[in-house]
Design a protein around this nucleic acid. Structure first.
Lengths: 255, 255
DNA sequence: CTGGTTGGTGTGGTCTTAGGACCTTTGGTC
DNA sequence: GACCAAAGGTCCTAAGACCACACCAACCAG
């Protein structure tokens, strides 16, 4: 109904050809990529990124492009750079970016829920597919990620175990598009359980993961989907507390 | 955590920092955008794109970038370009790109299923959300898209009505991420029902759409999800026939 | 046959990217 | 203390992407 410019006009011209198309600069793409990896916890606070020359080669970009990306991350407080023999690019404790993320989520009401609804769409179906078509071997990493959560100490370990679980499950579902979309969505969420003042609910998460794992292993697609949905809804509640909850409960870890 | 720089290995360096990061050229982005719109059927065979200067401005790019994109599309057989007063860029009958798409789907076994599983993930949850939070007014376009299918004549009209249904439903679900992802996934699928030799199953699609619509309107989230899943599974069967089925049934439309 | 619309082409300038050479800082080793 | 190696910091050159603008060439309607 919006298709035609006018009925009288003889031409089949489209009225509007849609929103603006943009291309990102390479440096921007690299910055986004690194930021996402930090959000997801692939690199933890205190850890060092590879040396510039090396990292640039790994990412397939020129060093100057990587440097520009690092400059952005440094401005936003994600990394610190030190020179010299044991220098390098180190991930900070992420307080400033975490606080900025929190402020943004508070401002942009609904964005957090949108991301979570998106994750629910992706991950419940991932659980369904994993239940249907997992192989014995593809479940091993999932199991390991569940077990890792049992013995976890500290936030970094918690986040990494959590992340590994979701990634391993996506891999068991054998769909690269789903896997990539899940990783991207998780990158937007800042994996903030361990970065913001909040005592991570290890027990609860462990129960949730185990429930998903058991259903998947049993081939129970509906059960897996429901367990995953329940898990993500609990995550939503936790995030609500983190973003909107009492700030005075703040309890930054000593280390 | 900060101190774990040393621990076995002297440095906390990450071994591999993941896959290569690339940036697309603007022309490439424009070409992808236009190709996707053609795949989705926003522009139909025989229709003319806006004049270069105008389209470039709409897309927010320089004319030369747009021209480069058009050159790509022309090479792939998507458009033909004519000069002169009633010249312009016209969408072809798409036989060559449709055949190329079909060949690719046959070669890359599983890609089609991956895309469809991805769509199922996105669209079943979209149906759930739409059932839960639709407004009266947001259902109007959905209803119109269902009705449009009833009176449809010809492939172009069929495809456009089909496309409008899915987009309208996504909008009723009020989640931009879902909406964009659905549009992108649909763009990959080439909406090939009307471009490849196949008699479109209007009745069946109409029934499916109506079932989804009714469930959404009734607020029946589970029913909407199941109806959508059934609809997409039927689409999968149709696509299987198109891609792998008997080629001799080929029956190209006169127009 | 002429004017306006449309694609086709060329020029000049700025920004991005790549790749490499060389400098500076720093911590550790001899 | 002198020196070395490893890291980031800086600078240069060349190639390509992108843009604005002007002008050319084809075409068709009036």
């Amino acid at each position: 109904m919006l298709q035609r410019i006018t009925e009288g006009d003889a031409r089949g011209t489209l009225a509007i050809m849609a929103r603006q198309v943009t291309s990102t600069t390479l440096a921007q793409a690299v910055a986004d990529h690194l930021r996402m990896r930090i959000h997801r916890g692939d690199v933890s606070p205190g850890e060092r990124l590879p040396a510039e020359r090396e990292l640039a080669e790994q990412l397939g970009v020129a060093r100057i492009s990587l440097r520009e990306a690092i400059r952005q991350l440094r401005e936003d407080g994600y990394v610190e750079v030190r020179r010299g023999a044991s220098g390098g690019t180190y991930v900070t404790e992420l307080r400033r970016p975490a606080e900025a993320w929190r402020a943004r989520m508070r401002e942009q009401v609904g964005e957090m829920d949108d991301i979570l609804d998106f994750r629910i769409a992706l991950e419940t179906e991932t659980a369904v597919l994993a239940a249907r078509r997992h192989s014995e071997s593809s479940l091993v990493p999932v199991r390991e990620a569940v077990d890792a959560l049992r013995d976890v100490i500290g936030r970094t370990a918690f986040r990494q175990a959590d992340s590994r679980f979701h990634v391993a499950l996506a891999r068991a579902a054998r769909n690269e598009r789903l896997e990539e979309a899940i990783e991207a969505a998780r990158g937007e969420l800042f994996s903030p359980r361990d970065l913001l003042p909040f005592r991570e609910p290890v027990e609860e998460t462990l129960r949730d993961h185990r429930a998903v794992y058991d259903a998947v292993r049993a081939g129970d697609a509906d059960g897996a989907a429901e367990a995953m949905r329940a898990h993500l809804e609990r995550s939503r509640q936790q995030l609500r507390i983190i973003v909107f909850g009492a700030e005075d409960d703040a309890e930054w870890p000593a280390s």
